[in-house]
Amino acid sequence: MEAADLDQINTLLDTDSELRERIKDQVNEFDKKTRLMVATLNKIHFTPPDTISALLDTVKSVIVGCQSVTKGLAEIVPPNQFWRWKDMWSNSLKTAVFASVLVEYLSSGQLAGLQQVSDQLGMREEWKDRVSLTVEDYLHGVISVVNELSRLAVNSVTLGNFDQPIKISHFVKELFAGFSMLNLKNDTLRRRFDSLKYDMKKIEEVVYDVSLRKLATVPIVPST
């Protein structure tokens, strides 16, 4: 191998190494924000319903803060290199999706869609070749929300909120029906979808107990 070729290779390696470190700095900042959101959202399991809105507002402000990270990544990642580097921030992004979707459900009872979450995290169409929210990452975040809601269904009863498990059950059943219509080719995603059956069973057990004791005030939708 010629000396000129070696020099060129070393230059490329140094450039890649420098770029990786710059991306890592942004990802570390992303991780800090997602850890804060998860820690804050964990409090929903022991926060009375009438004070939970303040907790959600705290998380919403952190979600907005994530926009600076996505902007930073868009400025660093070279054009058309999204798929080369996305794995570096994929876990952080899935967690941010989880937080965004969970906050929306707890605020409105609705599912935050892919575009809505993407907008909340500051993604822009012109950045899609550098940083964007993929369907797979969005779905992973949604599944994580169901995992968390199955836990919340149990803890809500402890707090005396007997209607919450039934509302959660309605929401999760609709989500499961939607997932069932998707052609999931990603093996990891498909396995995680299969795990939703266990979450649904856990929620249904709570709903059954609440129903048996006649504690709830909202109607229960029968299983289909």
Rank of each mutant, 00 (worst) to 15 (best):
L106H: 01
P49H: 08
S17M: 15
T34F: 01
I9Y: 11
L13V: 15
D25I: 05
T40I: 15
E126P: 04
S118A: 13
S53Y: 15
F30S: 00
L114M: 10
F46D: 07
A99D: 02
L106A: 02
E18C: 12
E18V: 12
I76H: 01
L102P: 01
S108R: 14
L41T: 01
Q110V: 08
F30M: 00
T51S: 14
M88Y: 10
F82V: 06
D16A: 09
T70M: 01
T34A: 04
S108E: 07
F46L: 13
L106D: 00
L19R: 08
G109M: 09
Q115V: 09
A39Q: 15
L12N: 10
E21K: 12
Q110T: 13
L41N: 03
N80R: 05
L111H: 13
E104N: 05
Q67W: 06
R84H: 13
F30L: 00
N80F: 06
K33T: 12
S92R: 02
L111W: 07
S68L: 05
T47I: 07
N10V: 13
N42W: 09
T58C: 12
M88T: 12
W83N: 10
K43R: 15
S53R: 15
S53T: 12
Q110M: 13
V101Y: 02
A39H: 09
K24G: 06
A39F: 11
D7K: 14
N28R: 11
W89S: 00
F46K: 14
L12R: 07
E125R: 09
V101A: 03
